[in-house]
Design a protein around this nucleic acid. Structure first.
Lengths: 180, 180
DNA sequence: ACCTGAACACCGTTCAAGT
DNA sequence: ACCTGAACACCGTTCAAGT
């Protein structure tokens, strides 16, 4: 049993939060390959099986990292204000600053059952309000995600002008912005 | 030594092509977890180490699958003609029909040194010609990739109208299309 | 309650040895 | 030229046993 019903995905005990923090640090400093149960346990001075006393599964541990990342990210986006270009720049900056975390957060299906309720919706709301239209918000979100994930994966040719590609994206969706 | 210089990434011998075909079939039928050297070898009635007589590394084997996928994909896109909405629909249809292959092709950094020369540029050319602008082409490509990858990862909320999101994307970039 | 050591069923890859 | 078996350094996870 990984977590009780009312606080699904919440980090129950202090040890579990500590484990997630170590995992996050390893992810940032050494990349996704360092995110193994044995490695994390070693960093905490214990054996891998002992982690299961606190975490349930590696998926749950990853979900804890994702949850902290989502919260951090949405508060970073919130500071960007109500300008599409600024929000886009902020989105890109966060992803580039935390590439391994971004990949963990977006590269796999969201483990919704392991995350705190409402976290996902909370992160999406600002963009929907900014664009006015829910479908346009999803298209903008997808475009930003696509640009970032292709950039992080080194998919653009060496000489590609990514600033220009972002500008083209913002220009294309600029007309869809809600007037107020 | 995986491959000679002039035909970097080309599938040299028949056995190597057969291995890639088996890998592709396993990927389609059982998903990415079945793409292991031991599993592929078993399918061919041999031991995993024997694969290295023909393939060099797992990365090279994956590159062979990616190369065949890219060729197949760009010819599928070519049949869609010169209409942005049609190309977008074709892009999405290919990805949805071959989710594991799409993920393999786009989810990791492109192993350019293991791919045939020109294959990547050839796949990108139609879109650049359609949009006229290179930066706009990249933004559209990213938007399509973002929509598809978020869809495949189950990132959109259950009730999301994805057709509408695609329509919003096509609408936003419609003005950027080259007039001829 | 928390941790260990051994074990199970997997990985990619190397290498000596066979034919 | 092609294949095997054993081995190495890894995985996530389970489980009996200790404190």
């Amino acid at each position: 049993m990984a977590c009780a019903l009312p606080t699904a995905g919440s980090v129950a005990d202090a040890r579990r939060a500590e484990i997630a923090a170590v995992a996050r640090r390893l992810l940032d400093s050494e990349g996704p390959r360092a995110l193994s149960m044995r490695r994390i346990a070693a960093e905490l001075g214990m054996q891998a099986p002992s982690l299961y006393e606190h975490v349930g599964s590696k998926a749950q541990l990853e979900a804890d990292v994702i949850a902290s990342g989502l919260a951090e990210w949405s508060s970073a986006l919130a500071t960007a204000g109500r300008d599409l270009a600024a929000v886009a720049a902020s989105y890109r900056a966060f992803a580039v600053a935390n590439p391994a975390l971004y990949e963990l957060m977006t590269g796999r299906p969201l483990p919704r059952d392991l995350l705190p309720l409402g976290l996902e919706a909370g992160a999406a709301k600002p963009l929907i309000e900014l664009l006015g239209d829910e479908d346009a918000a999803r298209a903008v979100w997808a475009a930003a995600h696509g640009l970032v994930s292709l950039e992080l994966a080194g998919r653009f040719p060496p000489g590609a002008d990514l600033d220009a590609a972002w500008a083209a994206m913002v220009r294309a969706f600029g007309g869809a912005q809600a007037q107020r």
